[in-house]
């Protein structure tokens, strides 16, 4: 870990996290209860309470490049038990959302899985397990993921090889496409409809 210069607190980042999560990170008094109950602690590079501390100190780079924000399972244990009633899981969500927009992926496999899943939804309108797995293997090169489970589950007839495609899948695909073009980015939306249209066209072209 590098020496942190506390003057170089990225206050815009702190505000962005607070706006996106609707939480005030200054309310955190570092009791450590979030870390205490976190089931994913053993997979994190920074514990949840340290992530909270890094946000308080405006250490954008460390937060956004951490694996912790991607590995948070969203189980809400921290949120449920926070004595200051901070939605800690919501803060982790916000950091991940910002990290994605800034193209920082602290845990590649996780973001690849999310992408595989969303692509499956984009193609079919619904998620398709076999398809998601295939895409995930494609994106990560982890072609042996869970193959040992195949003989267990395939005979149960629970994993149809073909997806259920819905009639309105185009509508769903459009939503995801617009999202991928960045049309829902807060800065863009906040700027108003005029800019919105212009950049939309730009993004499409």
């Amino acid at each position: 870990m590098e020496t942190v210069c506390l003057n170089k607190s990225d206050d815009a980042f702190v505000k962005a996290v607070e706006a996106e999560s609707g939480q005030r990170v200054s309310r955190c008094y570092q009791c450590g209860n979030c870390t205490a109950g976190c089931p994913m602690f053993f997979t994190f590079d920074y514990s949840v309470s340290r992530i909270m501390r890094l946000i308080q100190a405006g250490q954008k780079e460390q937060v956004l490049s951490s694996s912790a924000v991607w590995l948070c399972a969203g189980c809400e244990t921290c949120t449920q038990r926070c004595p200051n009633e901070i939605d800690v899981a919501g803060v982790m969500d916000a950091c991940r959302h910002i990290a994605r927009r800034e193209k920082k992926f602290g845990a590649r496999a996780v973001s690849a899985f999310f992408k595989a899943f969303m692509d499956s939804v984009r193609f079919n309108g619904r998620s398709h397990e076999v398809g998601t797995m295939a895409l995930y293997m494609l994106y990560t090169g982890r072609v042996w993921t869970d193959v040992e489970l195949a003989p267990k589950i395939l005979p149960k007839g629970k994993m149809p090889l073909l997806p259920h495609r819905i009639a309105g899948r185009k509508e769903v695909a459009e939503i995801i496409n617009r999202f991928n073009q960045g049309l829902s980015d807060p800065d863009l939306v906040r700027a108003g409809p005029a800019t919105h249209d212009a950049s939309a066209k730009e993004a499409v072209s």
Binding site: A73, G74, C75, A107, V110, F113, D146
Partner: peptide, 8 residues
């Protein structure tokens, strides 16, 4: 562990 069975 939720949906992390696959990526983690």
């Amino acid at each position: 562990g939720g949906s992390f069975a696959i990526p983690a």
